[in-house]
Every structure is written in C-alpha cells, then in structure tokens.
C-alpha cells in the first residue's frame, strides 16, 4: 500500500494540521509520500521531508499552484492518483476545497473529516455537528480521506526523506486567483494554539473583547469566539470556534460569556481542559467544563489576568 498526503503550506512551512494528517496516514499503514504543490515552495518540501514517517516528498513548483486553486490542484493529484491506495489531506479549508474534486473524478466516495482510523478501509467520523460518531467502511479501490487534525497527535521529526520534482499539469484556466485578505495578529493561530480564550455574546461589544485579549496575551493564547459573538459583529468571522467555524482541541480552553450552543460545543469539546466563566448558573457550557465559575465576566476576567 502507498499513501499520498497532500500538504498545506505557506511556501516556507507546513500549516498546522499537516503533521497530524501524517499521523493519521501512518495509522492507515503504507509508505507515505507527501505532495507539496505551490510556487517557490522548496522550503516547505524540505520541512515535509523532515517529518517522521514520510518516505518521499514530491515537489511541484508552478505559478498556477500559488493560490492552491481546487481545479489545478485536483488535476495534478489525478495525474498520479493511480499509484496510491489512499489519498489523504487535512480537513481544513484547503483540503475540503479540492479533495472532493479528486474523489469524484476517480469515481470514489470521499470519507470526510475522519477522527480515528479503525482499519485501512474503516474510519470514524463525526456527524451531526459532532453529536454522533459514525464508523464507516469504504468499498472503493482508492480511499480519498480528509483528516480532522484534532483527532490525531502531530508527527515528530524523522530522518530527512528524499525530495523529487513532479512536473506540473497545464493550467486549466478556469479560475484566476485575485488575492487573500488574512487577518493579521501576533497571537498564535486558533488551530495551533496551546491555550484559547474565547468570548461569547456575554462580552457585549467589540470594545469589551479587549479584556479577553489582555488575558490571552498574558497566557500566550489565541482569541476565539462563539458564533453569537461573530454574528453580533464583536469580532471577525475567522475567530469563530464551532461546527461552522474552527474545530479546536487545545490543552486549555477558557470560555467566557459563552452559553454553549450545540454548534459551539462541537468545535471545542475535545479540548483537554475546559474552563467556563458565565454569570448564568444554568449555562449549558458548564456541562462540558472541567472547572466552572459563576461570576460576572467583567469582574472575573481582569482578576484572572491580574493573578497570572
């Protein structure tokens, strides 16, 4: 068996979640080849070659892979797909975008967002916003799988694997990349952070999020939010933790002024330690919290920041 992992990267480094995806691939069993497609991305290929469990890295460098557009990326993967028993990518906005194109073109039913590998053809995946776990078996010849990073530990470093060049496939010309607007922050990314401080509707305003930011900066934490806080316009959409936002599992998750809607819990309930601060003693968030404090957040949060 041979496994192809398509890695997400920023041309220099692997994105968070890629090494977890490699851990999932190791569990499927087989030689692992990592594909790095992009423009001027040799450093990312070097980073992939240093991950434990990787046997080979394929580097494909061309202008039209710069934006990781689904049409061109899928065509590139399809050109080499028949060499592999499994085609695997992280279930991030990167992997979710192009992998179904690969699966459909191969006439394969993709297995989305697996959280565990039971056997080379059998996987566990959350459905209904994580309220139910389904164990599914694929009858297809090639398994096309996306991996929920929080279900797997990141792979460590290993001996450097060889890097081979892969010829690009011609630009399909269907889609033109116009640019990205990424939110700039000195804090860690939500999906990579060891600690996350999240605010909900109870924060009351965008201005009030500053007290959370102060706490986060003391802890070296990322700042997240519930959908209610995003929809109220307190913070941008990419802060959102939940089924419709980011799925996170940090060592410590501090939920502040978050009631705990099902869709939010689905995004954070795999965190190792959960702390909830809410003045409503009936808040559903307390059902998943390891430690909960019934108190006004405007009193508790500054106190906590000062105590650190």
């Amino acid at each position: 068996m041979a496994i192809l992992v398509i890695a997400e990267h920023d041309n220099k480094q692997l994105k968070p979640g890629v090494t977890n995806t490699i851990t999932a691939a190791v569990a499927m069993g087989g030689d692992i080849t990592v594909l790095i497609a992009g423009h001027q991305c040799a450093d990312a290929a070097k980073a992939a070659a240093a991950v434990a469990g990787v046997a080979k890295v394929l580097l494909c460098d061309a202008d039209h892979y710069a934006g990781a557009g689904a049409e061109n990326l899928a065509a590139l993967v399809l050109g080499i797909a028949d060499k592999y028993s499994h085609i695997v990518a992280p279930a991030t906005s990167f992997g979710k975008n192009f992998m179904p194109r690969v699966a459909a073109a191969l006439d394969v039913q993709q297995i989305s967002e697996i959280s565990a590998v039971e056997a080379p053809d059998t996987f566990v995946r959350p459905i209904y916003a994580g309220n139910v776990l389904a164990t599914v078996q694929s009858k297809d010849k090639i398994k096309v799988v996306t991996v929920r990073a929080t279900g797997f530990d990141p792979a460590g470093e290993g001996a450097a694997a060889p890097v081979e060049n892969l010829a690009p496939v011609a630009d399909a010309g269907l889609s033109t990349f116009k640019g990205r607007e990424l939110s700039k922050s000195d804090r860690p990314e939500l999906t990579a952070a060891r600690i996350i401080v999240s605010g909900g509707r109870g924060m009351g305003s965008a201005e009030n999020f500053k007290i959370l930011e102060a706490l986060a900066d003391k802890l070296g934490a990322a700042v997240g939010a519930s959908r209610a806080a995003v929809d109220s316009g307190f913070v941008p959409n990419d802060y959102q933790v939940g089924q419709t936002g980011k799925i996170v599992a940090p060592d410590l998750y501090i939920a502040v002024g978050i009631s705990g809607a099902i869709q939010h819990l689905a995004g954070m309930k795999d965190s190792k330690v959960i702390v909830a601060i809410n003045k409503d003693p009936e808040a559903p968030i307390f059902s998943v919290a390891d430690y909960w404090l019934v108190e006004d957040l405007f009193k508790a949060v500054p106190e906590l920041t000062a105590a650190l």
């Binding site: 906005s93 010309g173 269907l174 889609s175 033109t176 990349f177 116009k178 990205r180 607007e181 939110s183």
Partner: peptide, 14 residues
Amino acid sequence: TREIDGGLEKLSIK
C-alpha cells in the same frame, strides 16, 4: 469571495 482559514480569498471564475 471565499471564506478560508485565517481570512478571505478572492477569485474570478469562468
């Protein structure tokens, strides 16, 4: 405009 991890992406598609 597409929502991606960390922000937004703009494309022109045929």
